[in-house]
Write a protein that binds this DNA or RNA. Structure first.
Lengths: 145, 145
DNA sequence: GTGTTTGCAAAGTGTTTGCAATTTA
DNA sequence: TAAATTGCAAACACTTTGCAAACAC
């Protein structure tokens, strides 16, 4: 049994996460709330399923890796996350869903946003009829010199 | 036993492929020659291991899928191919190793070069010390409107 | 209560590897 | 003949799925 005040005090740190889930029409389960908190509290970030799972466990949140995968995809489907394909070995998810580009460290495999890189695509070549651009990804790859 | 004339007539269509392998310091084995011919005869192309393996079999060239994978990576290592990360599900290899960008069809999963798309990266943000840009990938993703 | 979500373990996918047999130089 | 290459099958890493139990509303 959970008292009203206990619930309120417990809920407060989860309020932003709760909003996000509510707004997206996803049931605020314990797991989803905890993952949303990890993802969206604080600055933008880039995670892999494995990373987020590890963080959750360290934060004493019981979640299975399968649920982390499912949750990341659900969040992506409702536009809370953006999936970035930079590395054939694993999938990255970005909490920044606005238009921006990426800087990938090939040594550490860390992914960063490029904040103010002006990319101009001149002469976008004619797409085949009935096709539209769904997105343009720019990935600057760096490594130890 | 193979006669000299038979060898010569057989070798002619493989001459460009042979050059490539020689130049790269790779032994021209039957498999590598056949794969090089499929890859480099004709216009630039984008292949996955599965695709190239299928083609080889259809052309009555006996190659195992493992060898196709190994060969694609060897070719990539010596600069004959470039690996493109566009799809989390599979790896693409591009015979065009010059600077250029890509157009990816999310429906058919076909990959194309963008021939003359001028991409200007202004204000390349300062890289961390000791790091250099190894490459910039630009991927325009399109899908059915 | 009813439909949704979870966790597990099993299955799946694309890819890599160990090693004996084969091929190249 | 010595060294490199191949093919197979097993191993791999990451990801998805089937289904019963747990949960949200």
């Amino acid at each position: 049994m959970t008292s009203v005040s206990e619930k309120a005090s417990l809920a407060r740190p989860f309020a932003p996460a709760l909003e996000k889930l509510r707004g997206a029409g996803l049931r605020p389960t314990r797991q989803r709330l905890a993952l949303a908190k990890l993802l969206f509290d604080g600055p933008d970030r880039h995670v892999t399923a494995e990373m987020l799972h590890g963080e959750a466990l360290r934060a004493r949140v019981q979640v299975s890796l399968a649920t982390v995968y499912n949750t990341l995809h659900q969040f992506t489907d409702v536009g809370l996350l953006r999936e970035i394909v930079v590395d054939a070995e694993r999938s990255y998810f970005d909490t920044n869903v606005g238009t921006h580009h990426h800087l990938f460290d090939e040594n550490s495999r860390a992914l960063h946003d490029i904040p103010e890189c002006d990319v101009r695509l001149d002469t976008m070549p004619g797409l085949p009829a009935g096709m539209e651009v769904s997105r343009v990804d720019v990935i600057v790859r760096m490594r130890k010199a």
